[in-house]
Computed example of a mutant assay.
Amino acid sequence: MKVLVTGANGLLATNIIAVLLQRDYSVIGLLRNEKSFALEPHENLILHKGDITKVDSYDALLPEIDCIIHAAALTGQDIIDYSVYQEVNATATENLYKSALEHNVKNFIYISTANCFGFGSLDDLGNEEKPIRFPFSNSLYAKSKLEGQEKLLRLAKDNPDTKLVTLNPTFMIGSYDTKPSSGRLVLSAYNKRVLFYPPGGKSFINVIDAAEAVVNSIELGVHCESYILCGENLSYKEFYQKVTKQLNQKSSYVKIPKFLLYGIGYIGNLLRFFKVKTDISLTNVQTLCINNFYSNKKAQEKLKLQQRSIDNGISDAIKWFKLN
């Protein structure tokens, strides 16, 4: 089976490609910059330079493709214009799926985000049945991913011959974080005697677990179904404690008051009002003040999602950053 993976330089996509190659798939990685690709050359891997927003970047590849894993996305939090997110995360996603239909591609795996569904507490975890909740309903990124997800589902209902599976990972930690993206949270603890942490929490997952579940979904995923990929639900303090333990580092932990974070968020909104690009906003700080927790029950049962300790993912991330 030949698989096209978009956004091949990303944390999850790189790990997906590694798993595909381990399982003897033939892979084409679509990416913008071949020089930043983290894996070694492989006889079953071809890197193709292209732009996901341009159909002619990939359309000629699709007649020989059996499966598309669409991991490319615009994730930066400093963008203040929704249309910029929309072009990549919704419109380009829809166009790629339409091209897949035209070329009779058998499988289309869309990598979305868990925040398209409603989060919950430890006593009532978020799942695939709960609609998006505030503050993510105000997040330009989450809204654009949800728009892309909904566009695909509308198309897929009338096109059962191209199986659509939507996968919704939470916060991923592990190797090959070249930007870095989520690994910035690990790096933020390095050599810090005092660690300031927000009052909320996240659902974390070892990126290897997420990648294996993505590849499993080629065979095990059900048409038009969504699966949340998550691991451990931790407060930010608990996560930082795990990081500093891996670093053999003694740190003190100080909780940032919610009112202070909100004040910073209002300043960010003011800067954005004057068209200043910043990843600080009221919505973004509000996400730091909630327990953004999810259940992985469906993915465990249907996709054989493993749940390795997030300690392993943190260890892998630290080792990779030190080497690179």
Rank of each mutant, 00 (worst) to 15 (best):
S175N: 07
P257G: 07
E129V: 06
Y190V: 15
P180L: 07
I16E: 05
S281T: 10
K255N: 13
Y227R: 06
L45W: 08
L164V: 04
E301I: 15
S83I: 06
T75N: 09
K250W: 04
Q286A: 08
A100K: 02
T75G: 02
A8C: 08
C116D: 00
A90W: 00
N33R: 08
G7D: 08
I65T: 02
I68E: 01
L247G: 13
I267L: 12
G174W: 06
R272K: 11
L39K: 12
A142I: 12
S309K: 11
Y236T: 01
Y176F: 06
S112Q: 05
E225Y: 12
K322A: 09
P135D: 02
L271I: 10
E212D: 07
T91M: 05
I314E: 12
K297C: 08
E232V: 02
S57T: 12
K242E: 00
E40D: 14
G200N: 03
K35M: 14
G263R: 10
I218S: 06
I46F: 09
E219L: 08
I310M: 06
S83M: 14
L146Q: 13
D51E: 09
G120P: 04
S121P: 06
P199V: 07
E301K: 09
A213K: 03
S217I: 05
Y141D: 00
N248H: 14
T287I: 14
I65M: 03
E225W: 11
V194K: 14
V27Q: 02
A13Y: 01
A189S: 15
Q77V: 09
N284S: 09
L152D: 13
I52H: 01
D158V: 03
S175H: 10
G313M: 02
E87T: 08
R154A: 13
K179N: 15
V84D: 07
I79E: 10
K297T: 11
V165T: 13
S188N: 05
V285F: 09
A13E: 00
N159M: 10
Y82R: 03
K106W: 08
D209K: 07
T113F: 12
Q246N: 15
I46E: 03
H103E: 06
N33H: 10
Q86A: 12
P198R: 04
S181L: 03
P257H: 06
N324R: 15
G183Y: 03
S139M: 02
G29S: 10
F136A: 01
E232P: 02
L155K: 14
E232H: 03
Y236L: 01
T14F: 12
Q307E: 13
I109V: 15
T93Q: 05
T170R: 01
I68K: 02
L187P: 02
A71M: 04
N138C: 13
S144I: 04
K157C: 11
V105R: 11
